[in-house]
Amino acid sequence: MTKAHKATNQEQFLLRRKMTVEGLGEDQWEGLIHDLNHHPCVDFAERRPNGTLQVTYDGTHWSVDELLELIKAYGGRLKSGWWTRRKLAWYRFTDDNVRANAKHEPFCCSKIPPMKK
């Protein structure tokens, strides 16, 4: 079953992030998921088994660092390890790339350049 995206989010710039969060109790998880699902830039957030958080957000207006700040505000932290650091570096890279692509003005090299007046 496919989920309809929020009207405010541009589907081509949606990024899905999957990370293991530690240190959250049941009430904290519910509050975090509630806040994420009601955030204007977040398309969808859910808790998966084994403390995994799955979030889809608009990469033009939000980043993984802001997501980490929200997790930290609830008292959580990411699982430590080499693989987590590697994924986090990749997430930051793709966040920057999506933001740059959203600002890019496309051009066609086969068009005649505009004439100066």
Rank of each mutant, 00 (worst) to 15 (best):
K111Q: 07
G81P: 04
N37F: 05
G51V: 09
T8H: 11
H38Y: 09
K103W: 01
G51E: 11
G31V: 11
T20C: 02
F93P: 00
E30L: 15
W82T: 08
N101E: 01
L36E: 06
R86H: 04
E26L: 13
R47H: 07
Y91M: 12
S110T: 12
Q12N: 14
G23C: 12
E46F: 11
V98W: 00
G31T: 15
R48F: 06
A100K: 01
T60C: 13
G75M: 03
F93H: 02
S110A: 13
N101H: 13
L15S: 10
H5P: 01
N97W: 12
C41M: 13
W62I: 08
L36W: 04
A73L: 00
K72E: 03
W82I: 06
W83E: 01
P49Q: 10
L32S: 09
T60V: 12
H104T: 09
Q12T: 13
P113M: 06
H38S: 08
E11D: 13
G31A: 14
P106L: 15
W90E: 04
G25R: 15
I33D: 01
F13C: 10
H61F: 15
H38Q: 06
F13W: 12
W82V: 06
V21Y: 08
L36I: 04
I112P: 00
V42R: 11
P49S: 14
W90G: 05
G31M: 11
T60R: 15
H38E: 13
R92Y: 02
I112H: 00
K18R: 15
D58Q: 09
S80G: 09
Y91K: 07
W82R: 04
F44A: 04
